[in-house]
Design a protein around this nucleic acid. Structure first.
Lengths: 111, 111
DNA sequence: CCCGTACTACGACGCTTATCGTAGGAACGC
DNA sequence: GCGTTCCTACGATAAGCGTCGTAGTACGGG
């Protein structure tokens, strides 16, 4: 069903106040998703799904991006045939101060 | 805590260097387990499993304590008919600096 | 209008998880 | 030994998750 809007198709994101700690932790507890978050944090800009190399199939990749979005970890918006992904750093820092940085630091320290 | 038991039953714990970020995040992503961790952090001493009130059955409770132990979040040791539980604060802080505090702060801020 | 690119919805699969009840073991006090 | 308390192993069940392939939609460019 086509929605009337000037911009591209929209995707549902939880608001800043709706972020749930358990959901965020669960989203971050998967190696593939953690890899996505690391990549987005390193790039520090919005990139397409395909810009992140993952060791899984395309459909699985889509699945993981959706989990991250629904948990409120990333923001996604359509742009042409692509979908841009960005870390919701501000929202995460506001609701769970220090959490994202601690996870990123821990994830990076293992290489 | 007089741990001088005559070869009391021992439990397996991952060493500090064996802690895995994903496992810890997963362990903390369950509401019941998060409640346990909060309680242990608040009490700040080793307590028996039964000292933590949980909204689940005894067997389920045992299950969650085991998940936390195997992820390296808590330490457990038998003491008489009880099993004492303690947060592995030092190990967690050493491997994942700031993570536990961020999670605890976030968990507490929702009441 | 057709084609390629990029993402997605769907269904399937095998595995893991959370939950419970029951039965039972280990330590302690008597 | 006996009973109590506390925890645990086991089996069952239902739900969830990660993975994939296939088929499909949306967009932009010739």
């Amino acid at each position: 069903m086509p929605q009337q809007r000037p911009a591209a198709r929209q995707l549902d994101h939880p608001g800043r106040e709706e972020l749930r700690l358990e959901a965020v932790l669960h989203a971050l507890s998967d190696p593939v998703r953690l890899q996505v978050v690391r990549a987005l944090a390193d790039l520090d800009e919005e990139v397409a799904c395909s810009a992140v190399e993952l060791p899984v199939s395309k459909s699985t990749s889509t699945h993981h991006f959706r989990v991250l979005r629904e948990a409120g970890v990333i923001a996604q918006c359509y742009y042409g045939t692509s979908k841009l992904n960005g870390l919701r750093r501000d929202d995460l820092d506001a609701r769970f101060p220090g959490l994202l940085d601690a996870v990123l630091a821990a994830a990076r320290s293992r290489d």
